[in-house]
């Protein structure tokens, strides 16, 4: 658990710098187990900043969502840096984006938090349904301590953790300017059991499964917008000429969209699980991303977002890449 006082102190120091526009963190949400992104623009806002196991959001996306609007005549562009608070997985997104030259390292100030795992909103809402008031959450070594209406519930972590956190290998930020707290030892190993058991199904079973999933898609593109790696100026799905994917919502167009989304994350997805969290149709998108992560690891021995100096997977090659499928 991170010392909130220290976090606030470091944040205050950074926001008081002249070259920082704002720092992105988390604050209490409006109801139940909600936590919401907070944009700290002055030291007055710092006291609203929190960090607890409900802070699932990958705030890196807001670096990529910054708008560059046309300036009024004579106005000057605000070139100050942006601060962002990151967990281990979030920091990999920054590494990956810097690798792709989507972001300049000098334009961000990164506050790292060694993370002991976050709570899956779906799981906790199922366990404690109908929470209107905001709830305080703490943690000890093996439990989450949840205070609801004066009552304290101790829930084993295993029960509420997001699946990605149970197998997390990178709880410590990979890249940071300030690290709040001390680094955590990791025991996680990549675990592709889910993917492997699904692979064993027949083609027909697989398609039946995905068809049912993609049928539900309403193409709100929340998966794309929440993804820190989806920062193209114009998404291929929005293109009109040529129009790769029609705006009609039906299984075949939805499938094409989901293939496109998944493929564009091949060797780039850092497994923050945001896409699946936000999907209103509850499509298991991580299951797709995980598959690609596994393949990329097996075929090319590559993992995304670990080293700023490595080239992105699909813009490099080795002469001896696997090619047994080639005629």
């Amino acid at each position: 658990m991170v010392d909130l006082k220290k976090l606030r102190e470091s944040t205050e120091k950074i926001i008081n710098r002249d070259d920082v526009k704002y720092v992105i963190g988390w604050e209490k949400g409006t109801h139940g187990f909600q936590v919401t992104p907070l944009f700290i623009t002055s030291s007055d806002d710092v006291e609203r900043l929190i960090f607890n196991p409900l802070c699932v959001h990958n705030l890196t996306v807001f670096l990529m969502l910054q708008e560059k609007l046309p300036l009024r005549k004579g106005a000057e562009e605000d070139k100050r840096k942006v601060g962002v608070i990151v967990k281990g997985c979030d920091s990999r997104a920054i590494v990956q984006i810097i690798q792709e030259k989507g972001l300049n390292r000098d334009d961000v100030v990164i506050i790292g938090i060694p993370c002991t795992g976050v709570i899956d909103p779906k799981k906790i809402n199922k366990k404690f349904p109908n929470q209107t008031k905001t709830v305080d959450i703490d943690e000890d070594a093996n439990n989450f301590v949840i205070k609801i209406d004066g009552k304290t519930h101790k829930v084993p972590k295993e029960e509420l953790l997001m699946d990605k956190c149970k197998q997390c290998q990178f709880p410590n930020p990979i890249i940071y300017d300030v690290l709040v707290g001390s680094e955590i030892k990791t025991t996680g190993k990549p675990n592709y059991k889910d993917v492997e058991s699904f692979e064993k199904k027949s083609l027909k079973e697989k398609w039946e499964y995905w068809e049912k999933q993609f049928e539900k898609c309403i193409r709100c593109y929340a998966c794309r917008n929440v993804c820190p790696m989806c920062y193209c100026k114009e998404c291929m799905v929005d293109q009109l000429n040529p129009q790769w994917i029609r705006r009609s919502v039906n299984v075949s167009e939805n499938t094409a969209w989901n293939i496109m989304r998944a493929f564009h994350l091949a060797g780039r997805c850092i497994d923050c699980g945001e896409c699946e969290r936000v999907c209103p149709a509850e499509i298991p998108l991580v299951k797709l991303n995980k598959k690609l992560e596994k393949e990329v690891l097996e075929l090319f021995d590559y993992r995304a977002g670990l080293d700023v100096d490595v080239k992105p997977l699909l813009s490099m090659f080795k002469p001896d890449d696997p090619e047994e499928f080639i005629l």
């Binding site: 699904f198 493929f263 080639i326």
Partner: peptide, 25 residues
């Protein structure tokens, strides 16, 4: 070669036979 290798795996996973996409030199 890299791209096609990944794409074939993805298609197979979705239930589309990977032999539908072939590559040759």
């Amino acid at each position: 070669r890299r791209r096609i290798a990944v794409l074939k795996k993805l298609l197979e996973y979705l239930g589309i036979d990977e032999r539908r996409v072939r590559m040759t030199w």
